[in-house]
Amino acid sequence: MRVRRLAAQAFAVFALGLEGAWEGVWAGNPIVVLPDGRRVEGREVRAAADGTIILILPEGARLEYPKGTRVIMDEPVAMGQALERMRKKEYDEAIRLLQGIVEQYRFLGWDLKALKYMGLCHVEIGRWDEAIRNLDAASEGAADLTSDEAMRVGLARSLAGLGRRDRLDPLLDEMVRKGTRREAAAAQVIRGRVRLENGDIEGGLFDFMRTARFFREVREWVPEAAWRAGETLERMGKPEQSLEFYRQAGQYPESEFGVRAKTRLEKGS
């Protein structure tokens, strides 16, 4: 009764036996969250083709909510599987699983997460266009994803891959100035690469050096930054100064840049 009252006070449309075109999935323990924060628990939830959310209540009644209404539900099993594949770097398989989630959970929230991870997979295999498409779609659907660290880094990498400076430059600027530490480190390295490609050797060097020196806690990006700083210094005819950075990169033997650095040091000594 309470649920019904809630539904009446909200903007739900109460419909019995309404058959409309719908897509959706039976999802465990779905909860619809209303704009004022109240929650409505159901047994099943689906989404119509136009994005209308249909919640089946435990006693069988059915409520409808407009597109964009927030839905909470258990994580799809396929999501965990996809993430596992990602960890193993089996990106194509992960994409396949994520695509399934996107289709099955369209408008239900998990589709956006799946889009995000699909985008990240595409980033890893260098499919920049698709990566951008997926990441943009994910962030358009969920405001919180626009500031998602992994997404911003992935987006920056993809834009750099495509040379889309119009979008890349402001994004990198934002990440460097106001992003998290990881974002800033990533943005600096990406910007450094772009600068080098465009002949701004000094600018590139500064980005690499500052990442290597001041962002040591971001282990994901420091080996590359250190390696590139060393390499750039060597190109500029400063081999003594390059050694500091090669040694730093060499402290990360698990990274390809660490291996390169060690080889370089051995060759030089």
Partner: peptide, 16 residues
């Protein structure tokens, strides 16, 4: 001077 410039750029940009 190289480190000076690097640090200056970092300080001005990140802590602007």
């Amino acid at each position: 001077l190289l480190s000076l410039r690097v640090t200056a750029e970092y300080l001005a940009e990140r802590f602007g």
